[in-house]
Design a protein around this nucleic acid. Structure first.
Lengths: 191, 191
DNA sequence: CTTGTCTATGCAACAAGTTGCATAGAAGGA
DNA sequence: TCCTTCTATGCAACTTGTTGCATAGACAAG
């Protein structure tokens, strides 16, 4: 279960509250791991009762108080143990591919708008990643000599960028295929 | 829940038993959706009791009898309804990326073997996909004028191939980064 | 002045996925 | 002969992930 470990890594990079973690998962961490705030609060609670993380109540004015979590020694040990054990290469779950193969039994042309929508979403993500890369790694504000942590964050971000570019190229391929099929059978399903 | 729909698509492409479906999920369908046999049997049972699929007992000699499932009209209608409603762009869960960012708090060099292992696994997958592509789409045995179903299966397979190639290139990038960091700090963690 | 958004945390119920185990006959190798 | 593998189906327990809802003060827009 890697959500625990993703949270530990994020807290090591910078301590924070459940709410802040949820926002990181929407942004920077979101390009390799997703989690909702309910999941995060539940895991934080469990890790706290297991002594993996420490809590500090932080009173705030003009907004609710928060609990700031940071990694304790046992949490760090657990993360280290996980880092040293092998994991399975990730398995994919791609709904859109199911839809594309399913379109053979429906109307391929009806999928065009859906694929275009995904294309736009991935274009936006790519732009977001590239902006983050310029801000943190390649722009004028970036550190001249990045440390190991920054190098590793950058290589993960490059992975996200490569993924989005690959996906956009593939979606172009999918759209071309769907247009070809729509031209072949002007309307209606195949079989 | 797209496992239902993935199974329906597979059964429309060719009726089969739970066991056969499990094998398809290990092979061709596996590059965009994974499922274990337990999951598949459970879903088949539910879809049968909902009238989405029909069963036919097939006696066999020299091996256990099997239940062959095929899609019934309500199942086809359910699939069609799903095909026409929009879905969210997929969310990623990449354990290896968590490990890479976590390596900043451990020993980056210790990750090299793990990344190499993943590289080999993805090389194997790519070879497997390419063999499938030659066999079904680009080789001498391939149909001269593929129908819509084959065109769509091919474009999904091209997506799998593109994904593996992208991943291999990224893993090379990761390895180069880890070697650079290992050379910088000959041994031990960063912080 | 009401509605909506942002910060902040959390419960409860449900759906989906994982892991371990069980059965059982046939075929093939040590 | 025993052990393993392949075909074939399934239960039970457990862990994860999702969805809906609840609370609550501050602030901004209409």
């Amino acid at each position: 279960m890697a959500l625990d470990h993703a949270i530990l890594v994020s807290l090591l990079e910078k301590p924070g509250s459940g709410y802040e973690l949820a926002r990181r998962f929407e942004r920077s961490i979101g390009y390799f791991w997703t989690a909702t705030h309910q999941q995060i609060y539940r895991v934080l609670k469990r890790m706290e009762s297991d002594g993996w993380i420490d809590v500090r109540e932080v009173p705030q004015q003009a907004r609710p108080d928060k609990k700031e979590y940071s990694v304790a020694a046992p949490g760090r040990a657990a993360l280290s143990a996980w880092l040293h054990e092998p994991i399975e290469p990730e398995s994919v779950r791609h709904d859109l591919a199911v839809k594309i193969r399913g379109a053979a039994f429906d109307d391929p042309a009806a999928l065009i708008r859906e694929v275009e929508r995904h294309h736009r979403a991935h274009t936006d993500r790519l732009a977001h990643y590239l902006a983050g890369e310029r801000r943190d790694f390649t722009g004028p504000q970036a550190p001249a000599t990045p440390d190991a942590g920054q190098e590793l964050q950058h290589v993960v971000l490059r992975g996200g960028i490569a993924y989005e570019r690959m996906t956009l190229a593939w979606l172009d391929d999918v759209l071309a295929t769907l247009h070809r099929l729509a031209a072949r059978h002007p309307s209606g399903p195949e079989r």
